[in-house]
Design a binder for these strands. Structure first.
Lengths: 177, 177
DNA sequence: TGCTAATATATCAAACAGATATATCAAATT
DNA sequence: AATTTGATATATCTGTTTGATATATTAGCA
């Protein structure tokens, strides 16, 4: 059975707002989306090619001068595919935290190693949390704009969970002390 | 540059406690670990073969009768590799939540679709949270056992973040109403 | 006895990550 | 004016991972 390629949906979702080149798509994914989904050139470019064959998107040359530049536009078929995916209730939600993996096997080393791993994690989270809070501050004033509302919701998800992470870090370090 | 294969560390971590067959390793990963890391036969068996070549683990035939059964044992080299990884401060922590992806592109559909997606997520989380709380209850009485302590820490991470998720779900549904 | 589920090893195609190759262009530096 | 740097832009390659499938044995049970 052909597995559903999730990067297709990310691309269709982005193209449903505006025409974009592969490079633009990568930049968008690396932005706010990267918090809950990743993408690489290695799957974006092949996906664009395949989806053009399936007529979910169309190509248009937008080279400004000598430089080759190809923008993609979503078709009616593409919009339907995106809509069907959104309406499909099943969703795969996965956490892949190497920090937790290291903590799980922490007994192999001195407790100090685990404490240090938690501290590094804490610093990461603290930095990301600040970024998310800035996003939230800007977005909060324009929630009547539907797109901002949905963006805001994903941002608050990040804020709430990261704040929970920080509380956990404090508790965990105490238990290891 | 040869990327570090994370499944190797999961396997070494598990083998540092007891000898296991590939099938056993899969079962262990599908248990409590699956909350923060996944593994499949498709990478477990090749990893076992490679690590045997690198002398990080050794094979021993433990077939009880006609059935082939191969258990693996960690070597001193394997323990060193595991220890080095634990002491390495850099860790890759990734969230891949299709629910958030759908929410981000929710504007394409009616708000009811997004609310439903959140509800499905909420049910998933509520179920997993119950399981984690049962783990925690059992473990809490034996935190003097080091292995239990580390297990308990990962479990409380899950509990704390899942509780934050549920609070967010309530807020998000209200904002979409 | 036959059926089903669990045990156990293993491989394959598709998807994905991360690095690299190639080349253009804009802006800053020398 | 020439050079360097960093951003833009497309694309591919290798290795890793996922999810499905193939094959076969064994235990329980009806």
């Amino acid at each position: 059975m052909a597995r559903e390629r999730k990067i297709d949906m990310v691309i269709l979702g982005l193209l449903s707002h505006e025409d974009l080149t592969g490079y633009d798509i990568k930049k968008r994914i690396d932005g706010a989306i990267s918090f809950f989904w990743k993408g690489s050139f290695g799957n974006i470019y092949p996906a664009l090619k395949d989806m053009e064959d399936q007529e979910l998107i169309t190509k248009k040359d937008v080279s400004d001068s000598g430089r080759e530049k190809i923008a993609y536009h979503i078709t009616r078929r593409g919009k339907k595919t995106l809509g069907d995916w959104l309406k499909d209730e099943q969703a795969n939600n996965e956490l892949r935290y190497e920090t937790l993996l290291k903590l799980f096997f922490g007994g192999v080393q001195d407790k100090k190693v685990s404490v240090r791993n938690i501290e590094v994690f804490e610093e990461q989270v603290r930095g990301d949390l600040e970024l998310l809070k800035e996003y939230a501050k800007t977005l909060k004033n324009s929630l009547d704009d539907e797109d901002h509302l949905y963006f805001y919701l994903t941002v608050t998800f990040g804020i709430d969970s990261y704040e929970a992470y920080l509380k956990w870090c404090a508790k965990a370090k105490k238990l290891l002390a």
